[in-house]
């Protein structure tokens, strides 16, 4: 049974002329329409995630990874024109067309997003614990003791020092903030979480800790995940299957080991050679 399925995802910024998707993409070698100048952030992206599976999305910067992640997490930024279909097991119909209330409930209970930019995901004026608690309180938790206990649990699970939970989030280190975001995304036991560049701006040793923590928590709680990264080693470490994107389109899909060891598409070959 497929948990999360996306069909023909498309985000265009600007005023599309109608032929934008024909003039852009991998073969055209650009994501900007030469006719009207609109930017096709992603087009015709289809993928699916099974329960408990980790799907990696790799590609160079500007290849549309984050646009896909936003659509999957139902957090479309607003100014782009969106098309396509996202379905989640247990819910009827296209969630991109669902009303605000339904999307809000799904974002609270079933799909967690770890933002690329800390400021999009956390409110730095709240305490770290408060940021995690917000998710629980939004989901209707009304018992202070239970909320505290759950926040403590999540801090322990994501290896953030529990005695720092009542400090303002802006006093946390970058790595801690990233882990608090993961704790927040996991707070309501979602079915799937979307990580957008989970290691941006972290040094290698902290990256390793964040990834280790995530891998352990992901396995223990058996939550499905979509990991978006420009860093092949992140995806190699975490993902069961990998999607390679370029100029807004998917150029290759396969088991992570297969994609890494036997890349078929020319761009994937270049990408892997340049890393290794």
């Amino acid at each position: 049974m497929t948990l999360l399925e996306a069909e023909g995802l498309e985000t265009i910024y600007g005023e599309p002329c109608g032929d934008c998707t024909d003039y852009t993409g991998d073969r055209a070698g650009t994501n900007q329409c030469p006719e009207c100048g609109s930017v096709v952030a992603c087009a015709d992206v289809s993928l699916d995630v099974e329960p408990g599976e980790v799907l990696g999305i790799v590609g160079e910067s500007g290849s549309g990874k984050s646009s896909v992640a936003e659509l999957l997490a139902l957090e479309a930024s607003g100014d782009g024109q969106v098309d396509g279909e996202v379905t989640l097991a247990g819910h009827d119909g296209n969630l991109l067309d669902a009303d605000y209330q339904t999307r809000h409930e799904i974002r609270t209970d079933e799909i967690g997003l770890v933002h690329q930019h800390i400021r999009d995901g956390l409110d730095l004026s709240f305490t770290g614990g408060g940021n995690v608690a917000e998710k629980l309180l939004a989901a209707g938790w009304r018992n202070f003791g239970d909320v505290r206990e759950r926040v403590r649990e999540l801090y322990a699970a994501t290896e953030v020092p529990v005695d720092r939970m009542d400090d303002p989030t802006d006093t946390y280190s970058g790595g801690m903030q990233r882990r608090v975001q993961i704790a927040r995304a996991l707070a309501t036991d979602p079915e799937v979480i979307v990580l957008d560049e989970p290691t941006t701006g972290l040094d290698v040793s902290v990256q390793a800790r964040v990834l280790d923590t995530f891998r352990r928590v992901q396995r223990e709680q058996n939550v499905a995940a979509v990991v978006v990264s420009h860093d092949l080693s992140v995806v190699r470490l975490l993902a069961d299957r990998t999607v390679v994107m370029r100029h807004g389109e998917v150029v290759e899909t396969g088991l992570t080991d297969r994609v890494m060891e036997d890349p078929h598409h020319e761009y994937t070959q270049t990408l892997i050679n340049s890393v290794i």
Binding site: H104, D123, F126, T127, G130, A133, K135, A138, F144
Partner: peptide
């Protein structure tokens, strides 16, 4: 959607 106000109360109790 009053989650943020609840966080305000939560932090009040914490403090």
């Amino acid at each position: 959607n009053y989650g943020r106000m609840w966080v305000h109360l939560y932090e009040n109790v914490v403090e």
